[in-house]
Computed example of a mutant assay.
Amino acid sequence: MILRVLGSAAGGGSPQWNCGCPVCTAVRSPAGLARTQSSIAVSADRRRWFLINASPDIRAQIEAFPGLHPHGDRTTPLEAVLLTDAELDHTLGLLLLREARALLLYATPAVHETLSAGSGILRTLERYCPVDWRTVTPGARLALADGLSCRAFDVPTTKRARFGPGRTTAASWATG
């Protein structure tokens, strides 16, 4: 398994636009190193890549990693996106992927409900490209590609649901 960390900062990246804490101030210095929001790419063969989350920084993350660059016209090695939750920090990048011929998304029914009926991200995305939604059941093994599978598991949260009454239960992914 090949894993590439595309971004490792919390929501908003580092530095955060509205923060003057010592860390953000240090990152803004000439010697500082900014970080994009959290997202990773996983592959078994370096030809087919799976994103875990699609941060709002996804365009810059793809440009910084040649393994995700397109081949020829608009053929890309991006196979699918696995969503751990419906947080904006993990899903807004889907809208930047709207020029795809089609998108394959994996997530729990709660995430699907939130992105459809709550935030509306999925409804907007579907107006640009076909979206193939694959339901993920926490605890069940999910085969992604030859030599690559994952298993989602529930992560309890005390965060309030921001997009209506639907649950926004998070799922973390274990790959291998």
Rank of each mutant, 00 (worst) to 15 (best):
Cys129Phe: 14
Cys129Glu: 15
Pro130Leu: 03
Val131Thr: 11
Asp132Ser: 04
Asp132Trp: 04
Asp132His: 03
Trp133Cys: 00
Trp133Phe: 06
Trp133Gln: 01
Trp133Lys: 01
Trp133Asn: 00
Trp133Ile: 02
Trp133His: 00
Trp133Pro: 00
Trp133Ala: 00
Trp133Tyr: 07
Arg134Ile: 02
Arg134Tyr: 00
Arg134Asp: 00
Thr135Phe: 02
Thr135Pro: 04
Val136Phe: 02
Thr137Ser: 08
Pro138Asn: 03
Pro138Ser: 05
Pro138Tyr: 03
Pro138Phe: 06
Gly139Gln: 09
Ala140Ile: 09
Ala140Tyr: 02
Ala140Pro: 12
Ala140Leu: 10
Ala140Arg: 12
Arg141Gly: 09
Leu142Asn: 01
Leu142Gly: 01
Ala143Tyr: 10
Ala143Glu: 15
Leu144His: 06
Leu144Arg: 01
Ala145Ser: 13
Ala145Glu: 12
Ala145Asn: 02
Asp146Ser: 12
Gly147Pro: 12
Gly147Lys: 03
Leu148Tyr: 03
Leu148Val: 01
Ser149Lys: 01
Cys150Asp: 11
Cys150Phe: 04
Arg151Cys: 15
Arg151Gly: 08
Arg151His: 10
Phe153Arg: 06
Phe153Pro: 04
Asp154Ile: 05
Asp154Pro: 05
Thr158Lys: 03
Thr158Ala: 10
Arg160Ser: 05
Ala161Cys: 11
Ala161Thr: 14
Ala161Pro: 12
Ala161Asp: 15
Ala161Ile: 06
Arg162Gln: 14
Arg162His: 13
Arg162Val: 13
Phe163Trp: 15
Gly164Asp: 14
Pro165Trp: 09
Gly166Ser: 08
Gly166Lys: 03
Gly166Arg: 07
Arg167Trp: 04
Arg167Lys: 10
Thr169Cys: 09
Thr169Leu: 14
Thr169Lys: 08
Ala171Tyr: 03
Ser172Glu: 15
Trp173His: 09
Trp173Lys: 01
Ala174Pro: 07
Ala174Met: 09
